[in-house]
Design a protein around this nucleic acid. Structure first.
Lengths: 223, 223
DNA sequence: GTTATTACTGACCAAACGGTCAATATCTTA
DNA sequence: TAAGATATTGACCGTTTGGTCAGTAATAAC
C-alpha cells in the first residue's frame, strides 16, 4: 500500500470538493455521485463515471487521482451540503413547529437528491469504513444537541415521553427510506414517480403520525 | 447476451435455493449472502465468496453456474424466509396486539439476519432490477391485504386515522434501519453492539411510539 | 508572439475479474 | 470391488478493471 498520510489525503480532497457549480470537477462529482450511489464503492466503475460525465476516462483521472479519492470527494460534498441545512432549534422553539420543519426538510432533501441519500446508505451498509469518524464526532454532537432540546421540552411538558435519540433516528429512517427504497414505495403506493403531490402527501402523513407519536397535534394550517 | 429463458433460470434457482441446512450449497449461500449484502451484486467478488466459505473458487462455480445465479438463489432464499413469517392478521385481531407483534417480529428479523436486510436494501437502492416482479405481485398483495384490515379497524374506530400503506412502510423503515444503518444507530445510542438489551429497548420504543401514532396505547405488560 | 501552465486524450499496462477444464477424489449402487 | 455418478480443485483463459503516460490542445502571462 502506498504510504500517503491521512492528512494529505484530506487536504487534497478539501481542495477538490468545493468546486464552482459549472466547473468540470463539479460535473464529474455529480456523475460519480450517481454511480457510487447505485453500485457502491466496489461496484462502481470508473468507465461508467466517465460515460455518465460524457468524458474520456483519463480525464476523470486527471481531475481525481484515484477512485478512492473521487469517492471521498463525493462523500465530503454530501456531508457538507447536509451540514449547511443545519437548522437552528432551541428550547424556546415550538416542538410541533420544529419537528414539522425538520421532517419536511429531510423528506425534501431525500426527494431532491436521492443519489446522495443512497450513497450514504451504501456507506452505512458497509459499516461506514470512511465515515466512522464523522459518526462519532459531528453527527454525534449534532444529535446530542438536538436530544438535549427535546429533553428540555419533555421536562417543560410541551412534548410527550420519547427517547430523543431514537426519535431522531426514526425520523431519519422514515424520510430516507423514501429515497433509498423509492421503487418499493412507488409500487406500494401505486404511483409512477416520487413527484411533488406524493411528496406533500407523504410529508403530511409523516408529520401527523410522528407528532402524534410525540403526544402532539400538528399545528393548524390554512387549508 | 446468452439467451437462457427466464423460466429456465427460475427453474434452476428453485432447484438450488432450498437446501438442507448442513449442506454445502446452504453453506455457500450463507457466505454469498454476507458478500452480496456488504458489496452489492457488482461489488461482490466470487473469490471473496469462496474465501468466506473456505472453499476453492471453482467449487462455488460447480454448485452455482454463475455469479448472477448465485445472487438470485440468495435473493429467493431471503424472500422465501420472509414469507414464512407471514403472520396471520384479521379484522377480528386486536390492533395494538397485532401491530406490536408485527413490529417486534420485524425488528427481531433485522437483528438476527442483518445481512438479509442489507442485501434487500442494496437491491432496492439499485432500483430492484431482480425484484420488480416481486414488488408488483407478492409484496403488493401482502400489503393490500394488511391495509384492508387496517382500514376496517379504522371504520370500526378501534384505530386512529392513518394511511395504512404508509404505516406499513414506516414500520418497515423504522425496523430495517436498525439493521442497515447499524453502525450509525450504535454510534448514536453509544452502544458497542446490537445485542438483546438494545433490541428490547428499541422494540419497546418503537411499539410505544407507533401505537401512539396510530392513536392507540400499548397494552399493559407485566413489568 | 513566445513561453509556461493547465487541460485533455488515444493507446496502453499489470492486476484482478468471472468463468472453464482436465484431472482427481469421493461417494453410490450392484 | 468394479462402475458410474457426483464432488472437488490446481492451473488456466479471455475480458475488464483501475490506473498510466506520452503527446497534444487550450489558456494565461508577459
Amino acid at each position: 500500500m502506498k504510504s500517503i498520510s491521512a492528512s494529505r489525503i484530506i487536504h487534497m480532497v478539501n481542495e477538490a470538493h468545493r468546486q464552482p457549480p459549472g466547473s468540470i470537477k463539479a460535473h464529474i462529482l455529480v456523475a460519480a455521485k450517481a454511480e457510487f450511489a447505485q453500485y457502491g464503492f466496489e461496484g462502481a466503475r470508473m468507465q461508467r463515471v466517465a460515460d455518465r460525465a460524457a468524458l474520456p476516462k483519463p480525464n476523470i483521472h486527471y481531475h481525481f487521482k484515484s477512485k478512492q479519492q473521487l469517492y471521498l470527494a463525493v462523500l465530503e460534498r454530501i456531508i457538507e451540503s447536509w451540514n449547511l441545512a443545519f437548522d437552528q432549534v432551541s428550547q424556546e422553539s415550538d416542538p410541533a413547529e420544529a419537528l414539522e420543519a425538520f421532517i419536511r426538510q429531510k423528506l425534501k432533501q431525500a426527494q431532491q437528491d436521492p443519489a446522495a441519500s443512497r450513497l450514504f446508505a451504501n456507506e452505512m451498509i458497509q459499516g461506514a469504513p470512511n465515515l466512522k469518524h464523522y459518526l462519532n464526532t459531528s453527527m454525534r454532537s449534532w444529535v446530542q444537541d438536538r436530544a438535549l432540546v427535546i429533553k428540555q421540552w419533555m421536562l417543560a411538558g410541551t412534548i410527550g415521553d420519547v427517547d430523543p435519540e431514537r426519535l431522531i433516528f426514526l425520523i431519519w429512517s422514515a424520510t430516507q427510506h423514501y429515497a433509498d427504497f423509492q421503487v418499493q414505495a412507488l409500487s406500494l403506493l401505486n404511483r409512477a414517480e416520487f413527484d411533488d403531490p406524493v411528496l406533500t402527501e407523504t410529508a403530511d402523513f409523516l408529520v401527523t403520525f410522528i407528532l402524534r407519536g410525540c403526544g402532539l397535534s400538528p399545528r393548524d394550517r390554512p387549508s
